[in-house]
Design a protein around this nucleic acid. Sequence first.
DNA 1: CTGTTAGCGCCTTCAG
DNA 2: CTGAAGGCGCTAACAG
Lengths: 338, 338
Amino acid sequence: MEQKRKATIVDVAKLAGVSVATVSRVVNANYPVKEETRQKVKKAIEELDYVPNVQARELNTQRSSTIGVVVPGLYNMFFAQVIDGIEDYVRQDQYSLLLNCAKNDPKQEMRCITALVARNVSGIIVISPNTAHIKEEFYTQLVRRTPLVFINAYHYIPDVSYVGNDEALGTQEALRHLMGLGHERILFVRGVNSDSYQIKEDTFRVRGIDPDAYIVNIGEGNSVETVDDTMQTLMSVLPETDATAVFCCNDLMGVGTINAANALGIRVPQELSIMGFDNIALSRYVSPKLTTMDQNMFRLGSNAAQLLIEKIETGQSKRITLDNTLVERESTGPAPKK
Amino acid sequence: MEQKRKATIVDVAKLAGVSVATVSRVVNANYPVKEETRQKVKKAIEELDYVPNVQARELNTQRSSTIGVVVPGLYNMFFAQVIDGIEDYVRQDQYSLLLNCAKNDPKQEMRCITALVARNVSGIIVISPNTAHIKEEFYTQLVRRTPLVFINAYHYIPDVSYVGNDEALGTQEALRHLMGLGHERILFVRGVNSDSYQIKEDTFRVRGIDPDAYIVNIGEGNSVETVDDTMQTLMSVLPETDATAVFCCNDLMGVGTINAANALGIRVPQELSIMGFDNIALSRYVSPKLTTMDQNMFRLGSNAAQLLIEKIETGQSKRITLDNTLVERESTGPAPKK
DNA sequence: CTGTTAGCGCCTTCAG
DNA sequence: CTGAAGGCGCTAACAG
């Protein structure tokens, strides 16, 4: 079946026997129109099933009601929830989301952003921008023409708004929780290649005892394989360590560690305490339920949206840092007695 | 800091000392341009950091390179993965995704769709459309102006393309798997209010023995509470039943059942086999790993995207039905001997 | 090969 | 209160 040609404002005007200006006025309700003509126009709109063309409107008014979001990917619940938060906030302001996946590829990320700019979005939110592999100039150029907000970024660029978590503080809090339970020897599980892991490790080193002996790197920390990879690694590490607790840089690793402990017959938390980080949905579905630090992904998203809209309207940029809060569940408990 | 006014094609033309037509030609590379002038234009573009305005272009050419996606929400990994599939396919064809959440609300779904139409998208994909609570006329009207694809829908509307799974067949296959392992008394766990559960139950009834005694409804089947709700319900059901296997309508229920079994000290799969449905990421992270039927969410998405583009280009609609395939993991095994 | 020009659909002064 | 007309940025004939 062929598509019906969409009715335009001219069609409506013609049918209603008025000028396009009048139609525009009743559609936007921004200028007085005699009730009687208003009704005529309404009827014509109804009849033709007329929907105003937003593209044309925005071209004309030089505004745009869509915002762009660039995300590494959707395979990961973390990002999905952040987007959920963005969508939720932005919808109230009648904005729409243009979504692009960067696939963890700097080149792709730049392409996404350029495409968004071409689409004339009124602003862009980038989740976990690949600042390490994209030259700063790209962003500084970008920000001169489009408001920009970064979520979870580790390099600061002028005139960009930021929202993120204080992961160092969160890590401290997590370690304090563990130490408060009497744990002295804590294993630190991290992945490869991410500022986030490094920040946490730095924090760990300051407080830890002989840190080098207690750090294990399980490789890629954010893929579908992470849980299994962690489990494999920990299956060989756990029997050899004298640690009574494990701190994991994210929940995937946390769950992998739980699985390893289960497989080895180590009781959690009686014999071993395990902490994750992030509080993704997964963490509350496993058993025992994982104690973790909440990265409040949803708030990350809604705050970013708020910042972006603020920036669009006022031109002001700012940084918001959220606190990670402890979510105490079943995987941590008092250190076993010697 | 204030935004730089975006350079337009006129600015470029002026700077390069040529006409706008020439600039357009080098940008689109669709008509011959002398190499020398081409270079001049290129330089001007570079200098002004010119990016063509897609809105204007599309307004002019009457085409659109964005497609709309309406999804119930992102909280659920299922939908996120479907979108991932859509994005992946669509990107190759240079389309962009306009994303809207319907929040499981029919009103909201209609609003989303109208907004997308206004934005002049070239087509729309709706995931799990709320066909039960939206009058068919809305869709038939819609499809007259915009190509439409439904993912996982249960009511057929003319000229809409569909992609979905054969859930009846998948259920049969799942039950056959269980029966092949010697299970005769199978518990059927479902949620409330979804065609999907009903289709599965109907299939179960045909094959089951005294089905009424073996059906349990755990309430809302697709929320963050589902795992816990299922666990609670099954904690009281499991000790009273003589079933040796449990078929769950989705993986959240499957995991809830596993948790219940674990908590009750029932060994899985030695004493009880448990099957899920969907194969969301969660199912491979729990222990024991959940045996399930794959709904291949990613393929659902990419196929929908393909169908939509086909429909946009040819006007033809069609239906694709994918097969659920068995993913055998650790939660099912031979029925215990009497 | 290149420039001129007429719209795409809409909003918004500016005159009635 | 209403209509006529210009223009948003770009493309696509149509002339040169």
